[in-house]
Design a protein around this nucleic acid. Structure first.
Length: 299
DNA sequence: GTGTTTGTTATCAA
DNA sequence: CTTGATAACAAACA
């Protein structure tokens, strides 16, 4: 599931690969995922280039040349953005970049096979021969072209502070938590309160801070808020460093799995031993989501 | 056929 | 106003 570290990994890689290249041709295979319409999308994207690529929470925001429209890309649950330049070739049934595989990557790190595949929803072709594939098995994701006003409104109405920004101080965090009486799991999943966390990282940061996911946000002590704030920062940064978590479908822009999966302490580890106390990790449903935690450590 | 997986939005009830 | 629960979206898997 692409959350902040996964989207950030894709963003950084794409910046170094496709910025300022002219978009030549757009191939849409799943029209429902294109907003406001395929016709409008093609008309206003063709001939442009992406001049900057930013991220707000889990949303990618591409500024287009001309500064009239912005391209929003959301991967939702199973979306992938895979970029292949003109040097890609087929090796052992997989689409691979020569340069990448010589750096010590193995075939096992790559999933997805040749592109396009049956999950390819859109292909953006660039002048230099590069191609950006937007794949989405469950088709929840979207590509959306917006003007400046829509962009401002969308970001203002839907996204709280960026957890890795300087502005996200522990004081800001504390103030936000104290406005909510719902459980801390649901609070951290709320993108308006803090942007970018999803189900995996919420479970992980709560375990690291030893806070029970059922606790109400407003009930947290100052020491617990401090611990939680630190856990969020440390875990997100480490997850970015290791290029995100692959649990099912996420891959980076090279089609590679994330490296953070082996650092997961609770997510997907029900009945396995807690790294703190050795007791079994439990699982329950909270905020409509599978919630993993250690009942002995997280009180 | 049933339940489970989740990012996000919509809807309804309390 | 808040919250919580549920469904919807879509596809795969056990």
């Amino acid at each position: 599931m692409p959350e902040l570290p996964e989207v950030e990994t894709v963003r950084r890689d794409l910046i170094s690969r496709l910025l300022n290249q002219r978009i030549n041709k757009i191939d849409i295979r799943a029209p429902k995922m294109i907003k406001p319409s395929v016709l409008f999308f093609k008309k206003n994207l063709t001939g442009k280039s992406i001049t900057t690529l930013d991220r707000r929470g889990k949303l990618l925001v591409a500024t287009l040349s001309g500064q009239r429209y912005w391209l929003l890309l959301h991967l939702k649950m199973t979306g992938q953005l895979i970029y292949q330049d003109k040097f890609y070739q087929i090796v052992g049934g997989h689409s691979l970049l020569n340069k990448t595989i010589t750096k010590g990557q193995t075939l096992e790190n790559f999933i997805g096979g040749n592109l396009p595949n049956k999950y390819t929803c859109a292909i953006i072709n660039f002048q230099g021969g590069g191609r950006l594939f937007f794949n989405d098995l469950r088709r929840f994701g979207y590509l959306r072209l917006v003007d400046r006003e829509e962009l401002t409104t969308i970001i203002k109405n839907n996204y709280g502070p960026e957890p890795l920004d300087k502005e996200f101080t522990v004081a800001v965090f504390k103030k936000a938590l104290q406005r909510h009486s719902k459980n801390i799991k649901a609070t951290l999943l709320d993108q308006k309160i803090i942007a970018g966390l999803g189900n995996i990282y919420v479970d992980e940061v709560l375990w690291a801070a030893r806070i029970n996911p059922k606790r109400s946000a407003i009930s947290l002590e100052t020491s617990e808020i401090n611990a939680l704030w630190r856990s969020i920062r440390v875990i997100l940064k480490k997850a970015i460093k290791y290029r995100g978590t692959t649990f099912s479908d996420y891959v980076d822009s090279f089609g590679r799995r994330g490296g953070f999966s082996r650092f997961l302490k609770v997510y997907g580890r029900v009945r396995q031993a807690c790294a703190y106390c050795g007791g079994p990790i439990a699982k329950l449903k909270l905020a409509g989501r599978g919630t993993h935690y250690c009942p002995r450590c997280q009180v």
